[in-house]
């Protein structure tokens, strides 16, 4: 891996400043995507701005919403007792990312900023209609995810927190890639406070997306049975040696059913 300048600012403003000053800078959160990428020589930034000094970890559970600091690790999210009551699907999702060691380092902010098409968090963010708080603004999830490894974040903008509405019910089911354990298909289902239903799918396409055909069926009847015979179209889904688009399409319905069954 190429060498780089390293800074660990304590304030968001300083981090932004450091990034603006850098020739080709990258933010570092948990590092579980960035460091392997650097090791493989797929990126060679001149500057690394480590966000761990911002100390913005924490899960705040309110009556209507939950706000999670960007620096909160997957283990901390999964381990939050309040969150497990408020949004059990989200806590379960966090507890299934990577492996225990990865969960000790990886953060929600890093995951959302990276927007790996096989990451888990984007499914929860889109599935619950979360709001992404950044150093500059608040971005609704609908507008945040713009494609494969691509988000609405601009230049030196930093994710600082994520705000999730507390739903009536939520659930997540993942079919991991058997080798990497990333989501080959992950489905987040939520019945929101207003009774509306959202289904977000990760791993299956070039980026996280909602599945309207499943949402329509579940809006009528929020039960796994309601999804019987509802097929998701394979067109546009990812196809690789681990799973064809057809197989992924099939798994979306299966995982959606399992997510509904698990929803609390």
């Amino acid at each position: 891996m190429e060498n780089f300048n390293y800074v660990r600012p304590a304030k968001v403003a300083d981090a932004v400043k450091a990034m603006k000053k850098a020739k080709d800078g990258k933010y570092l959160a948990g590092g579980h995507t960035l460091l392997p990428t650097l090791k493989q020589g797929l990126a060679a930034p001149t500057d690394i701005v480590d966000l761990s000094g911002l100390k913005n970890a924490g899960v705040k559970v309110g009556a209507k919403s939950v706000t999670i600091g960007a620096g909160t690790t997957h283990a901390e999210v999964a381990g939050s007792k309040d969150l497990r009551k408020a949004i059990p699907g989200l806590a379960k999702l966090a507890g299934g990312i990577g492996d225990p060691h990865v969960r000790h380092r990886g953060t929600i902010g890093g995951s959302l900023a990276n927007n790996d098409p096989a990451a888990d968090y984007p499914a929860a963010a889109l599935g619950l209609g979360a709001t992404i708080h950044t150093s500059d603004r608040k971005i609704p999830a609908e507008k945040y995810f713009t494609g494969m490894f691509s988000t609405a974040l601009k230049g030196s903008e930093i994710v600082t927190a994520v705000e999730f509405p507390v739903p009536k019910k939520s659930g997540y089911a993942k079919f991991p890639n058997p080798a990497s354990l990333y989501a080959m298909v992950g489905v987040f289902v939520a019945q929101l406070a207003d009774g509306s239903v959202r289904v977000a799918v990760t791993g299956a396409g070039p980026g996280v997306f909602r599945a309207p055909e499943l949402e329509a069926a579940l809006a009528k009847n929020f039960s796994a049975k309601a999804l019987d015979g509802i097929a998701v179209k394979a067109k546009g889904l990812n196809s690789d040696m681990h799973a064809s688009a057809e197989y992924r399409a099939h798994l979306i319905t299966v995982m959606a059913k399992r997510a509904v069954e698990a929803a609390k």
């Binding site: 058997p178 080798a179 990497s180 990333y182 040696m241 681990h242």
Partner: peptide, 11 residues
């Protein structure tokens, strides 16, 4: 080689 790491070769 398509299965060139533990990302794609399932141990």
């Amino acid at each position: 080689l398509m299965t060139g790491s533990y990302m794609d070769y399932q141990m």
